[in-house]
Design a protein around this nucleic acid. Structure first.
Lengths: 319, 319
DNA sequence: CTGTTAGCGCGTTCAA
DNA sequence: TTGAACGCGCTAACAG
């Protein structure tokens, strides 16, 4: 593969001149420009971007840390990020963590190693202190409530939205409300569980550990949830489900078992994913793609930034 | 940020020695090693990977070209790729094409520009000739039938599997069979449509353009399909659906409208995705994650390789 | 307008 | 065991 020097020689000019025409810098005579262009054509020349990255100190690569690509929730966020990345001539390097901390650490390190210009963390695992430290080496933005920390973030207040959902359900005179959460240790889940408990407390209702379903993440988790539900002597009349995917799975299983929704079981989902629309699931909209877009934009612009995204109730037929 | 020179000075050794300890090359006295390690610790040193990439001529970055990350079909393939990439110390650069050719071209170019060590194309758009040309600049592997071309590929024979599905349906005495396909111009869809037409021809059945549904890609596409189905005076009694997502969407809509499956409408899906299991959809298994794993492995090992992946009928309750 | 020169940060002969 | 020196391919002063 020809390099810039070869082109220079072939065109009878200096490497600087070649560099100039490559980068579209003016002040090059038309003849020399022509000559360079011809030489490039002839040798099928392409720049070695690694050299450019080295000298420029940046790669136009943005790291995206997600637990799993399979989940439509993150898929939508990534979609938004990708859209904006394309417009801005950036590429994404995908880092799947499967919720293993060391993988997130590796991503952080890539930022420090200058392989990445910025890092978007869609679901943080490691401690805030660590993230804060690495933020010194490059731009980091987190899709998670980072209020009180020196890390940029775009987030939804899961405590607040959960409380809103619960209040909505109680407005529909549900007293026995269950709750499906994702991984127990997640920040969002913790916020949500706190809201759930506080709500129960406020209402003077007892907390029943059987009413809470952890690790409800995928569509197929609907199955064991409904199974557990039917095995209960005193099941909840409504379920707050923190993912439309799971809500859809639950709904599908209820149909299968002829458990009427909402009369016997009301369901409220989260995210307003396409599946929620088609299945007419009442849900709270989280504009995932838009969030993705903004995550990207803020990640490259750098600077400290925090913003809460409000959620919006979408009333449909499952409550 | 400290560089290798700084470390050398600080530790009172040469850069070569520093490089040796960084890369674990033997023949370094313990004292010097200690000194270097201490200096590295002190300055919080990390290599600049861009320099390493430049000198080594590789980046440990593999490009993954997919139309859309949202689709669980590709999500599963990527999942497999990511799993193996992690084991092999490679990272993935995600390139979403949205079926726009110029984006695929850009990915191809990145390979040539040495930003990428290899390219995995999950759904090709551009001409084979172009891909074949770029294969000179780096390792390329395609998840698509490339028999007769000089490009590596792992693929399923969609003609064959489609024919198998159709035969299965006719074995269940279905004569009026419809067919849901993805984008009309895709290679897979073309193969499938060909199988569909050939089958009809073999059976002496007429071809009814209304029996074929294009652009059936997502769960939510089930809706308009069922709508169109119910509007027909002479609807098919069975549907061959080339994606479990769509099959699930159709099934959900049928439940909603109380169209009994399989008595009034039989459905056979493709992929054996988790959703098919939970909804008890009869389908043809395509081991997407395994395919992803092998795609990755072959992409980095280089060399010409082609392999057909067989599909397997999973009988459940929708036929 | 154009070319010379000095790096970017690192790996790697080669000679000591 | 060690280090000097060269080069990966490119950009960016600086001088003309």
């Amino acid at each position: 593969m020809a390099n810039i020097k070869d082109i220079a020689k072939l065109a009878g000019v200096s490497v600087t001149t070649v560099s100039r025409v490559i980068n579209g810098i003016p002040y090059v005579s038309d003849e020399k420009k022509e000559a360079v262009l011809r030489a490039m054509e002839l040798t099928n020349y392409e720049r070695n971007m690694n050299a450019v990255h080295l000298i420029k100190g940046k790669t136009n690569l943005i790291g995206v840390v997600v637990p799993s690509i399979k989940r439509p929730y993150f898929g939508l966020v990534i979609e938004g990020i990708a859209e904006e990345a394309l417009k801005n001539n950036n590429n994404l390097v995908l880092i799947q963590t499967n919720y293993e901390e060391h993988r997130e650490l590796e991503a952080l390190k890539m930022l420090k190693l200058k392989q990445l210009d910025a890092l978007i963390i869609c679901s943080k695992i490691s401690n805030w202190e660590i993230v804060e430290e690495y933020a010194n080496y490059g731009s980091i933005i987190v899709f998670e409530d980072a209020r009180g920390r020196s890390v940029s973030s775009i987030f939804v207040d899961h405590y607040k939205s959960c409380m809103e959902a619960l209040t909505y359900l109680s407005g529909k005179s549900h007293r026995k409300v269950g709750c499906c959460l994702a991984r127990k240790s997640g920040t969002s889940s913790k916020q949500r569980e706190l809201a759930y408990r506080d709500y129960l407390h406020n209402m003077g209702e007892p907390f029943d550990p059987n009413y809470i379903f952890y690790d409800a993440i995928h569509f197929e988790d609907g199955e064991w949830i409904v199974q557990r539900l039917t095995a209960m002597h005193n099941p909840p009349t409504a379920l707050l489900v923190t993912s439309d995917q799971v809500a859809a799975g639950i709904l599908a299983c209820c149909k299968e078992r002829e458990i009427d929704v909402p009369s016997r079981l009301a369901i409220v989902g989260f995210d307003n994913q396409p599946i929620a629309k088609i299945l007419n699931i009442t849900t709270f909209e989280i504009p995932l793609m838009e969030i993705g877009r903004e995550l990207f934009l803020r990640s490259i612009s750098g600077g400290f930034f925090q913003k809460e995204i409000p959620v919006k109730l979408i009333e449909r037929l499952t409550v």
